[in-house]
Nucleic acid binder design. Structure first.
Ligand SMILES: [Zn+2]
Length: 276
DNA sequence: GGGGTGCCCTGAAAGC
DNA sequence: TGCTTTCAGGGCACCC
């Protein structure tokens, strides 16, 4: 599933492959992908726009169109492909963008969970309605241990729920949340109010180290999240606990267990990750 | 605020 | 073998 490192990989690949291309036309084949405005208005407004810049915030892709901002969230299985307009597309392609140069940008999504938005351009990213409840991106320089301490130290939620909460840190999903808990040597169900200031420093450090490492490896390619745009992540080779139920912990050789935390499948090592 | 459930969806996996 | 049921999961609405 596309989390921060996968989205970063996709956005840089799109930037490289498309550059400042102009969108000639747009076709929506599944209306619910377009969250705002209506599919008709979305198409009418995006037509003729040129992509000026490519950005990412949290798990969102942002296409700067000059006067407007096109924002996409790939949720579970969204993927982008660039193909010739006359090439056939399969049943999971839901939005088509005809480009000025004859190529076509295709949005593919098996589960149809992804969303796209098109807004008048704003100065601050948090002014877009879809970012109303989004906190600071994991690499936003305003994200500090102090911010985390204030945002979390009195909350009654568990560590993994805190990591997954996009209104605190934006960009962490199920895979990296498991890896971060393991790197911290903390049980995913550790109450967040047990963490001290020092712990929030480590939490931020480890979060950034792991996400940065994953970006370097082109993200993680497992299960549903197969390659997009010829992007084949290799970070799955570096995973220590996620999706490794029944395997040996790389540190203590103990067996990795799977439980449910915050309604998500969660893998951890009971020996290395003790509750406080 | 916080935990729980259901919804959006499909295909893989499990159950029979 | 083959048909049926269950389940996963990011984000959100809604419940208590
Ligand atoms: Zn261990």
């Amino acid at each position: 599933m596309p989390e921060l490192p996968e989205v970063e990989t996709v956005v840089r690949t799109l930037e490289h492959q498309l550059g400042n291309v102009t969108i000639k036309d747009c076709h929506v084949l599944w209306d619910n992908i377009i969250a705002y405005p209506t599919p008709q208005t979305f198409c009418a407004q995006i037509k003729g726009k040129t992509i000026q810049h490519y950005e990412r915030y949290g798990k969102y892709l942002l296409f700067d169109l000059g006067s407007m901002m096109w924002i996409a969230h790939m949720r579970m299985e969204g993927k982008f492909y660039i193909q010739k307009s006359d090439e056939p597309y399969d049943k999971h392609v839901h939005v088509l963008f005809d480009l000025q140069d004859g190529r076509q940008l295709r949005y593919h999504d098996t589960r149809k969970f992804g969303k796209m938005y098109l807004y008048e351009k704003r100065k601050d990213i948090h002014q877009y309605p879809c970012f109303q409840n989004i906190g600071l991106d994991a690499f936003d320089e305003r994200l500090t241990p102090t911010y985390l301490y204030h945002a979390l130290h009195k909350r009654k939620i568990v560590l993994k729920a805190a990591l997954l909460d996009q209104s605190v840190i934006a960009g962490i999903g199920n895979i990296y949340a498991d890896e971060i808990c393991f790197a911290l040597g903390m049980h995913p169900e550790t109450k967040i109010y047990h963490l001290r200031k020092k712990d929030f420093e480590r939490l931020l450090q480890e979060t950034r180290r792991i996400l940065q490492g994953a970006i370097r490896y082109g993200g993680t390619t497992i299960r549903s999240y197969t390659s997009s745009l010829g992007v084949d992540g290799r970070f799955q080779l570096k995973l220590k606990v996620h999706a490794k139920k029944g395997e040996k912990c790389p540190v203590c050789q103990g067996e990795i267990k799977k439980i449910t935390v915050a309604t998500r499948g969660t893998c951890y090592c009971p020996t290395c990750q003790r509750k406080r």
